[in-house]
């Protein structure tokens, strides 16, 4: 009873591919869904923003691909543990919110000593968080060693378009406009915001 050669070779090929497929089944099986657009309602409280911010960091923001919380040893990226306690004093003249905003909108402008530049700009594709989403992330970051203070109305000077108005709350029907005062960012270089205040938000939801 000899097996014909082509059958033997066929068997070998099937067994080999089968073995590799089997190896492939042994590793953790994780399906990565495309990020969900987190709906940010205008009436989010700061506590809600913390929760949403955490979700964004875990999901769409991809933050935990690089950053860790509460890990020590040789790190490739700064650990975010207690980051809020350092943020306010990192750069002179920047409050903690502004420091966070700057690190997210212009990540290479300040590099934590001992690390290499490498963080992508978060408000541009491929990650492309909206301004509101970034505010939520900042809210969560503030809880790491501090207390969240930002609201959806908080303004800072690093919005998507320099000199543009800060994000209007996306759902203006839910709340009358005057209840959500639009805080203008500190005017930079004497520029005055040109966009009409009631115009579309700088948030790019759905566009990317």
């Amino acid at each position: 009873m000899t097996i014909p050669l082509p059958a033997r070779i066929g068997l070998l090929v099937v067994l080999t591919t089968g073995f590799y497929t089997y190896v492939g089944q042994l590793v953790p099986q994780k399906e990565v869904q495309p990020p969900q657009e987190t709906a940010i309602r205008a009436d989010l409280t700061t506590a809600d923003m913390v929760t949403v911010g955490r979700q964004i960091m875990e999901g769409k923001g991809l933050c935990f691909t690089c950053h860790t919380i509460g890990k020590s040893g040789v790190l490739r990226f700064p650990d975010l543990d207690g980051v809020a306690s350092r943020a306010a004093t990192r750069e002179p003249g920047l409050s903690d919110v502004e420091y966070f905003a700057k690190s997210i909108y212009a990540p290479d402008s300040f590099i934590v000593p001992g690390f290499n530049p490498g963080m992508p700009v978060i408000n541009k594709p491929p990650i492309g968080l909206t301004d509101q989403e970034i505010l939520c992330v900042i809210a969560y970051l503030q809880t790491l060693g501090g207390t969240a203070t930002v609201t959806l109305q908080t303004s800072h000077r690093y919005y998507t378009a320099p000199g543009a108005i800060p994000p209007a709350p996306p759902d203006e029907k839910a709340e009358p406009g005057e209840k959500l005062p639009l805080t203008l960012p500190p005017a930079q270089k004497g520029e005055t915001p040109k966009a009409p205040a009631a115009g579309p938000t700088p948030g790019k939801k759905g566009e990317v």
Binding site: G70, D81, A84, S85, G145, G146, T147
Partner: peptide, 19 residues
């Protein structure tokens, strides 16, 4: 994390204490 990072400042009995 067994010893997480502390906040820079806490308020105890309405008094601010810098950690």
């Amino acid at each position: 994390t067994i010893h997480p990072a502390s906040p820079p400042e806490i308020t105890v009995h309405e008094k601010k204490i810098s950690i």
